[in-house]
Write a protein that binds this DNA or RNA. Structure first.
Lengths: 232, 232
DNA sequence: CTCATGTCTTGACATTTATCAATCGTACTC
DNA sequence: GAGTACGATTGATAAATGTCAAGACATGAG
């Protein structure tokens, strides 16, 4: 593993408080693995063998039921995923696949559990990480139970806009097909939702999007920090 | 506080591993409070001052947005709620109200955070509790994204059936209005969903329900442990 | 270049869900 | 007992979303 990668992993809130020897103990049996795009990393229902840390690339977490499939969230560097299954020594509730070529650190599950028992700073950091993850899923559930598809799209666009740096156009970071699944609708419906937002200053050209009337869009979206602010 | 109540609280997985002096330290500044039905205990957006443990009664956790309201889950004895907000020292993401006369233990938030720092057994138990809570919300999200309203109702009824003891009829533990909100539909729609399930052996009479063709219902519901098994 | 593939879009239609309104029934108050 | 309030149900209608089909467009392989 390259030193700069180690530093990036170390920079995660989850790992930054670890004792050096404890971090070493966690990394020693772990390995950094390179995957091409569209590889299924874990399948829901399988026992949780590894904690994954995404160092480069992007990973989609999704689930199946009734012959349907739905994306729940996208994991981007640097963060972990499927933490809860590892901690409870349970089966995965979600499947995961790479969206692009990615590098992932794989930490054996039993090592994670052992480290929690031996390093209380790690345990405290883990509590914070889990609480954060819990709250983000609650926000996900609120987003879906309290908003229509068009409203979810409007808020997604406003969120993208808030994250971007300059005043340039927005670029969708994922395919529309995937965005539709994340937002809980069909691709056809997403197209129509974009059309519905046109009177609110949403101009779409492929994956390029320009918001010309942010305030109008915000009025429609009814953004609230209790769903949309990732910091709280 | 009555000794038997202390024992019940102590019996929670979250507290059972605590050092006796640590448990004492947690209980000393806490108080057991009696509330009538329909009292708003916490309001989303307020800072998290207390961790609540429900000793008797029932509490509804719900949220607002866009002028809509939706119930997310029901907390029953003996369990905690709004744990994550307390741990992160953040605002509540959900509101809470009593569904019936209830007795709640209120533990000051800073005491919970201090106990985590001082008692590593508590921290480990907390990790398990948070991971469990996280997974149950993921199941909630899957339930809503991957199933129709009728399917969610069918699975709810099958879950009730699995929990009940004898072979007697089912009794809905909550009002239909509330059940509708939990399942993410209007009360009118719930009535129609019950009607849709009639050909699958679901006989409704007020809050009494008889399932005469469980296997047919199960076929429709497509129950899967990855959404419906509360133990995993 | 040409073909093949897959995504995106649009239209027509079906299904699901919500909304509005009216009614019934029950429980509670006075 | 009469009146009131509220939950539950039903019908009519509207809105939202999904399904099927067709075509436009881009991309990469040969």
């Amino acid at each position: 593993m390259r030193p700069e990668d180690l530093d990036r992993i170390r920079g995660l809130p989850l790992f930054s408080a670890l004792q050096p020897e404890c971090f070493e103990q966690l990394m020693e049996p772990s390995f950094l693995q390179r995957f091409p795009a569209a590889v299924e990393l874990v399948r829901e229902g399988d026992p949780a063998d590894f904690l994954y840390v995404i160092v480069d690339g992007a990973v989609e977490l999704y689930a199946h039921a009734n012959g349907r499939e739905s994306s729940l969230l996208i994991a981007t560097p640097v963060s972990t995923f499927i933490l809860a299954a590892v901690l409870r020594d349970a089966v995965y509730l979600m499947s995961a696949r790479t969206l692009e070529a990615s590098r992932l650190l794989m930490i054996p599950a039993e090592v994670v559990r052992a480290s929690i028992a031996s390093d209380s700073a790690f345990a405290v950091a883990m509590i914070d990480e889990l609480a954060r993850a819990f709250r983000s899923v609650i926000k996900l559930a609120k987003n879906h139970k309290l908003r229509t598809g068009v409203e979810r799209l409007a808020n997604y666009l406003l969120q993208l806009d808030a994250e971007k740096d300059g005043c340039a156009d927005l670029v969708l970071p994922i395919e529309k097909r995937l965005l539709a699944s994340l937002l809980g609708m069909t691709p056809e419906n997403l197209s129509r939702a974009f059309a519905t937002l046109r009177p609110y200053g949403v101009q779409v050209e492929g994956s390029l999007i320009r918001l010309t009337r942010i305030e109008d869009l915000r009025t429609l979206a009814k953004t609230t920090p209790l769903i949309d602010d990732p910091r709280i």
